[in-house]
Design a binder for these strands. Structure first.
Lengths: 242, 242
DNA sequence: CACCACACTAAACGATCGTTCAGCGCGCCG
DNA sequence: CGGCGCGCTGAACGATCGTTTAGTGTGGTG
């Protein structure tokens, strides 16, 4: 990896240092002084070049957006799947893109206009990819395409958001290439066969929601949440303890 | 909602204020003075009661863990699914549990021993639930049960982690009960039928991975290992840096 | 009443934050 | 050569941070 090439311009070195530290510690957690030390300059020079810490952040945002969306094509011109393709490429060698991926995670979690645009674009591209897959017959059409696209897109972000937990829970530190590869098959299994072996739960939930379209006081089956990790019994079963 | 009941003890009021502000702005983003103002006391009293800001955080952690795991049962005694069931109940009316859910999100994302234990426990319970489902015949057994449990568990956390984006992308603000309900069917569809209409992609990826178990120069099928969703990959956190 | 424990506060301390300021050195242009 | 722009720095400013200190009032107990 080449975090801080000495031959780069001083301004670029500061920007790269900011990108690395914002990504690792968050915007609030990375001080201008820390950034200056990493870039080998004085804190005053950081402000001199960028005007303020917030403006420096904006420039980092723009750089990452460029890197994700592709420098040469506009946001929506490429193939629908190329955002995912870009991320795939990044996955191939994690280490060299670690700073960018860290920063991307912060953009999505820290909240901000740039992060919102990035997320919305990711959802839009996922939606287009699904529509294309449905048209080609390789994917199933869901009952709520907009929501399905959001769900699929967010599921794709999980390894980014929970990298640390994923690595730790599986005996590695961080998200190694080996871990990424290990995720492939179980993920594809889930997206090919699902988890449930019968449509009983889906049908039960569907019937329950159709029966109580508004806030349901009645059926205890309001499983609303996004996870299937609810108890394996059908929606009618009550959930127990407080 | 009742954020600060006046009749509660002062100590509890401080703790509740800290929980709300830590959840909303993060640990670093919420100052002792802010917490004191919200609790209607002086900043010094916060330290007087809890010793330090970090100790206050620890008490908030413990409170939330208690609330999630259930006050009366030990962490692993209950039914395998009851952690998910608890989250289900919380999501059923998000507004009244807003502070706890926000804090839970921070615990998982901010990194810390309590958050790690929480995550690991969630994965363990998810694993147990899947094993139980497989034994009962209601779920399919995956090729990598440990990884499958991690994936399913993390997918369940998505609505929490990306609440803001989810709401915005779907035209609401935050995670409304209506939105939670709307997620139910598409999620269950995904977990029942999957996304792909044929096992072709899974089989291709399976063959490719079997052919190159170690660092693969990559199946040239552009989608090969990749599916729509896996985008991510994060950086690890090495120890050192200036 | 005397005494003390304790909830509680005002003020301040030292550290660190983002930012400003005055100035230094050096290369370029007249 | 003289001046000037500019990359760059050390020092400082004011704000805010977590925490400490010294102290006040009050209520219970001897």
């Amino acid at each position: 990896m080449a975090p801080a090439p000495v031959d780069a311009s001083t301004r670029d070195r500061i920007r790269d240092a900011a990108l690395a530290l914002f990504g690792r510690h968050g915007y609030a957690g990375a001080s201008v002084r820390d950034i200056a030390v990493r870039a080998g300059v004085s804190p005053a020079l950081v402000i001199h070049h960028f005007g303020s810490k917030e403006a420096l952040r904006a420039e980092c945002d723009a750089l990452i957006v460029d890197e994700i969306m592709g420098r040469k094509e506009s946001l929506l011109d490429g193939e629908p799947g190329d955002l995912a393709a870009t991320m795939q490429r990044w996955l191939a060698d994690v280490d060299s893109h670690r700073a960018s991926l860290d920063y991307l995670t912060r953009m999505i979690t820290d909240g901000g206009a740039a992060g919102e645009r990035l997320f919305d674009d990711l959802v839009a591209r996922t939606r287009a990819m699904i529509d294309q897959g449905v048209a080609a017959g390789t994917m199933r059409a869901g009952s709520d395409p907009a929501m399905t696209a959001v769900i699929i897109a967010t599921h794709g972000l999980v390894p980014l958001l929970l990298e640390h937990h994923l690595g730790r829970a599986l005996g590695e530190q961080g998200l190694s290439p080996a871990l990424v590869r290990r995720m492939t098959l179980p993920t594809l299994e889930l997206y090919t066969h699902g988890l449930y072996s019968s449509p009983a739960i889906l049908e039960a939930a569907s019937a329950a929601l159709a029966g109580s379209p508004e806030t349901s006081r009645g059926p205890r089956s309001d499983k609303g949440a996004g996870d299937p990790n609810q108890d394996p019994d059908p929606p009618a079963a009550p959930a127990s303890d407080p």
